[in-house]
Design a protein around this nucleic acid. Structure first.
Length: 822
RNA sequence: GCCGGAGUGGCGGAAUUGGUAGACGCGCACGACUCAAAAUCGUGUGCCGCAAGGCGUUGAGGGUUCGAUUCCCUCCUCCGGCACCA
């Protein structure tokens, strides 16, 4: 028997699959659509690494498993090709991002093909191709049309390294999501998408999604729904009213001052024409400058200045001085907050500026209570006791909440309101390698959408890549000339491009779009270009049948970025009547992260592991099975190739034992039959739950027992090959052919098990005495409880431990064990 | 600080409506084959014991139970997320 030689056999089956167009899915004819999607990769110069394999290969095994269950499976692949790395590479090397991206895509497609996954390459997408970003721009126009896109000046996150603004979601831990540089705050006019309008729907929708609880919780926290009171208040001596948001209204009688954000438009009005105007406006300007100069760090100590104005406090607890204060957020709540002794920051701020405080909550502990009363220590605990006279007196902080809210509403001081932490999505980027925002400005500076007939609104070529804080597109003469030619003299284009997360917020629809109505037949090209022109984003029939994505697999790092943007865009498209579903991804699974020496693989750390050499030596099947066998798919782990040998041996043994032991005439032994059905059950359940590691170990166990048989019937061998097919597709096809199977094994029906065959005639029961295992007994499967207990007590070693003791209790767990207590 | 998750042999890991902890694999040791090595195959692999058998054990400590990796409490360590959101 020859050894299994992956290089020839894998190439052979990849060719056969392709010739038969085995993995091209007819979207319109599908009866049982099942959409398996992995988060599409960035076409980086690092090429395909072990992490991609760890993600893609199990996803493919699952897709194959679903196909063998009779589903019409779509498993597409594409590239999230816009973005900073290609542009940074261009700055360094002078090579145009389009050139390097095309070449990277070509290399990666080649590598991906060698994996032998069921990718339907006819549907490939590349977000940087004009055929694709035409739709990214179309999406922008839809958002603009439905008043979900707007431009405003706001304090935004800015990365001094990348020289661009970033969305809230991309400022992680105060650092740039891409390069790790500390983020600064800057006030700039930028384009936003109104994701906040969907806050409640994004929250409610989570309920019915089959997603990891952790991810749902992260989105929930990110949306940050908070219920509280909006107080209506008046400025004393001025005809100005405003609202103040308070999510913990229990303190309202303790409030002694009010703070307002420096950027708040009310600030100038408060101080206009008074002696406070000059110092206050200087203070505001100083904070603004700090933000402009990238020097404003949020963790710095709070600063503030008195405005000379007071709130005409309706509660009758005295007027509240109004302070401008650096720690107040302009875009959360109303930008104005009432302060009390029972908030830690307010407490510190008041002490710093000698603002009077009032205590309304005391701990039960007397010594501590004295300190709290004397304002020596800050205090706020759920079990603190309310001291203010009235309905809430004597209640705990926690209990009093509802009572206080009812009282406030009854008195008409304010009304309950809901606020969200979620901010609008900042989509402008001052970078080159992205989809240009399809907006032009008239000579007065008013924005106008670029008409759809001019899409794609092409990304100009004649630019300067160097990041200067100015959008690279401003250097393009062609871009400016193009705008003036089309719209008239003095018109200028928007120079910013869109966040790449816009491109990826709807790509799952683009995979489905290549066969829609009114579109030319698609054709595949190495770069993913060449999709025909069409008038609709997606065929409604195809969208109805194929959405939402049945199984979506990707990293957990996207929980509050891509995964929330995509949901928002889908909802907006639904409201615009473009799609019928509200949620894009029904089931979501996060693969684990593969690290190297404990660190995330990255080019800068130089610890990226290339799979190419291992695939060359052991084959795609062995390598993917090794990755799946390492541990649970959702766990990941530190990279090591020790142990791939075990899978290599397994593969070679399958290839040897199956043909060697197969005997068409032999009978199936009852032990083998039982083992086979047990394995079918285990493998079926495990793959369905993405527990590939235990599915593989079950197949190893069955192989071990088959090896002990003198011969195995053909049917058993064929069933084994089918069970193997999702996990090791090439070997399975080869064996299927060798054993005389018809067609592709991937087109066979998945085996089913018969519970009757799993049962065995005798069972082994453990016998415990006082909780310790003292022996084992063999019993017939249908033995009665009495017989089992009798046999247990007769077991010689058990008897030894029972002698001389009175039996207190006897427990029989059917089919498992007997527990005796003396 | 707040919210999650996880700690099992030399290693990756298996087993949870509470029921024989360590499946499967790696590594290691010994043996077979070989002039030899690699590959392959066999046996063993928590501790004591030739064995029968005994003892121990799932981060630490306590609790519930006939029985706890699994449930409860306290603590330790690690990982992930959020963090001037009033």
């Amino acid at each position: 028997m020859k050894d299994y030689d992956p290089s020839t056999i894998e190439a052979k089956w990849q060719r056969r699959w392709e010739e038969a167009k085995a993995f091209e899915t007819d979207l319109k004819k599908a009866k049982d659509p099942y959409y398996v999607l992995v988060m599409f990769p960035y076409p980086s110069g690092d090429k395909l690494h072990v992490g991609h394999w760890y993600n893609f290969a199990p996803a493919d095994s699952y897709a194959r498993f679903m196909r063998m269950h009779g589903n019409d499976v779509l498993e597409p692949m594409g590239f999230d090709a816009f973005g900073l790395p290609a542009e940074n590479y261009a700055i360094k090397s002078g090579i145009h991002p389009d050139t390097s991206t095309r070449s990277n895509v070509q290399t990666m497609v080649k590598q991906l093909r060698r994996m032998g996954c069921m990718y339907d390459w006819s549907k490939m997408v590349n977000t940087s191709s004009p055929e694709y970003y035409r739709w990214t721009q179309w999406l922008f126009l839809q958002m603009y049309k439905h008043k979900l896109a707007y431009k405003k000046e706001a304090s935004v996150n800015f990365c001094p390294q990348c020289q661009t603004v970033l969305a809230n979601e991309q400022a992680q831990d105060g650092k740039c999501e891409r390069c790790g540089t500390p983020i600064t705050q800057k006030s700039l006019a930028q384009w936003f998408w109104k994701i906040t309008q969907y806050a409640q729907r994004l929250l409610d929708g989570l309920e019915d999604l089959d997603w990891p609880d952790k991810t749902k919780l992260m989105q929930k926290n990110w949306i940050g729904r908070s219920e509280g009171i909006n107080f209506r208040e008046r400025v004393k001596d001025l005809d100005i009213e405003f609202e103040v948001y308070d999510s913990i209204p229990q303190t309202f009688l303790a409030q002694t001052f009010t703070v307002i954000a420096p950027e708040h438009p009310l600030v100038p009005k408060l101080v206009a024409g008074t002696s406070y105007e000059k110092p206050v406006m200087e203070f505001v300007e100083r904070i603004r400058r700090k933000k402009l100069a990238d020097k404003f760090k949020i963790e710095e100590e709070a600063e503030g200045i008195f405005t000379g104005r007071y709130v005409d406090n309706p509660f009758g607890t005295g007027d509240l001085p109004i302070w401008v204060c650096s720690y107040v957020l302009a875009d959360y709540g109303t930008g104005i907050v009432n302060c009390s002794a029972h908030d830690e920051r307010d407490f510190a701020f008041a002490k710093k500026y000698n603002i009077p405080l009032k205590v309304v909550l005391l701990p039960k502990d007397h010594a501590l209570a004295e300190k709290v009363k004397n304002l020596e220590v800050f205090y706020r605990e759920p079990d603190g006791i309310i001291q203010t006279p009235g309905a809430a007196f004597g209640m705990t902080w926690e209990q009093s909440r509802k009572r206080v809210i009812d009282y406030i509403e009854m008195k008409g001081f304010g009304t309950t309101r809901v606020h969200y932490r979620l901010r609008d999505w900042l989509i402008s980027r001052q970078r080159y390698w992205g989809a240009p925002i399809p907006i032009v400005y008239d000579p007065e500076g008013n924005p106008h959408p670029v008409p759809e007939k001019h899409l794609p609104w092409l990304l100009p070529e004649d630019v300067e890549f160097k990041p200067t804080g100015k959008s690279p597109l401003t250097y393009s003469k062609e871009f400016i000339k193009r705008t003036e030619n089309l719209f008239g003299k003095g018109w200028t284009p928007e120079f910013d491009t869109m966040d790449t997360f816009v491109c990826s917020s709807f790509y799952y629809l683009m995979y489905l779009s290549s066969e829609g109505f009114g579109m030319q037949a698609p054709h595949f090209s190495e770069t993913g270009e060449g999709k025909g022109e069409r008038n609709h984003l997606i065929d409604p029939h195809v969208e109805r049948t194929w959405m939402p994505v049945s199984m979506y697999i990707g990293g957990p790092e996207h929980a509050c970025m891509h995964l929330i943007y995509a949901r928002f865009v889908m909802m907006a498209l639904k409201d615009a009547g473009i799609v019928s579903h509200e949620e894009p991804f029904q089931r979501l699974v996060h693969q684990g992260l593969i690290t190297n020496k404990g660190a995330k693989m990255s080019k800068s750390k130089g610890n990226v592991v290339s799979p190419d050499a291992l695939v060359e030596r052991h084959g795609s099947d062995a390598f993917r099975m090794y990755l799946m066998f390492m541990g649970p798919f959702t766990d990941g782990g530190d990279w090591s190739d020790t142990g791939i040998k075990g899978i290599d041996r397994f593969v070679q043994r399958i290839f040897r034992i199956l043909p060697e032991k197969m005997n068409k005439k032999c009978e199936q032994s009852s032990a083998l039959r039982s083992g086979l059905h047990r394995t079918i059950k285990k493998v079926t359940e495990d793959i369905a739950a993405l527990r590939f590691n235990t599915a593989i170990s079950a197949l190893m166990e069955l192989l071990n027992s088959m090896e002990r048989e003198t011969a195995i019937p053909l049917e058993t061998a064929l069933t084994y090959v089918k069970l193997l097919a999702p996990l090791a597709p090439h070997i399975a096809e080869e064996l299927w052919e060798m054993l005389g199977g018809k067609g592709f094994v991937i087109d066979q029906k998945w085996p089913t098990f018969d519970p009757a065959f799993i049962k065995t005639d005798t069972l082994t029961i453990a016998v415990q005495v006082n909780g310790k295992v003292r022996g084992e007994i063999e019993i017939p499967a249908d033995a009665s409880k009495e017989d089992v207990l009798k046999a247990a007590k007769d077991q010689p070693n058990v008897r030894k431990f029972l002698e001389g003791h009175a039996l207190k209790k006897e427990i029989y767990v059917a089919g498992k064990l007997v527990s005796l207590v003396v």
